[in-house]
């Protein structure tokens, strides 16, 4: 089962390696990891998708909390948050297919961000599952390159994560 965890860390050198090191050292499996700044310039937020069971998730939470730069760890409940991943997909196009690909993109809510005579580059921001679907739909046309970010996620509702209870 996949769990999405939000980890707030103080913005200092070496934090990412501490977190990554902890996962490999303790044999936890990371599905994806994304880091970025937050509303507070001294704090970064990592979103980590972990593959495991409840025991693993509890261990990950506790071990993360032991790292001094980690301020808060929260495992987001299924359905109570909005997960997003960003994909950039370069697809081959031959003369007759351009319209097809544009229609698929429109249908899925993706954007064409670059075009050449032989290719289209599509930007897509949605859940990881929907990104998989788009990939499947585009595959027959010939995918040249895909770049995907790790999942980021925010909780539903009005409260920011720093206020909510873990």
């Amino acid at each position: 089962m996949k769990y999405t965890m939000s980890v707030l860390v103080t913005n200092q050198p070496g934090v990412l390696s501490k977190v990554a090191g902890l996962f490999s050292r303790r044999g936890f499996n990371i599905d994806s990891l994304a880091v970025g700044t937050t509303e507070d310039p001294t704090v970064s937020r990592m979103t980590i998708v972990v593959d495991g069971d409840e025991y693993i998730v509890e261990q990950v939470e506790k071990q993360l909390n032991k790292l001094i730069p980690v301020i808060k760890v929260k495992t987001l409940e299924q359905g109570s948050h909005i997960p997003r991943t960003l994909s950039l997909i370069k697809v081959s196009v031959s003369a007759g297919q351009r319209a097809d690909i544009m229609r698929i993109s429109e249908l899925m809510g993706a954007r064409i961000v670059d075009a050449t005579r032989t290719s289209l580059t599509i930007e897509f921001s949605d859940t990881a599952e929907r990104a998989d679907t788009l990939e499947t739909l585009l595959k027959p046309y010939g995918i040249r390159e895909i770049v995907r970010t790790g999942t980021i996620a925010i909780e539903k509702g009005a409260d920011p994560i720093r206020k909510t209870q873990t």
């Binding site: 025991y55 261990q59 506790k62 909390n65 032991k66």
Partner: peptide, 8 residues
Amino acid sequence: IDPAEIGK
């Protein structure tokens, strides 16, 4: 005192 030891 270390919560990570409990249940590990």
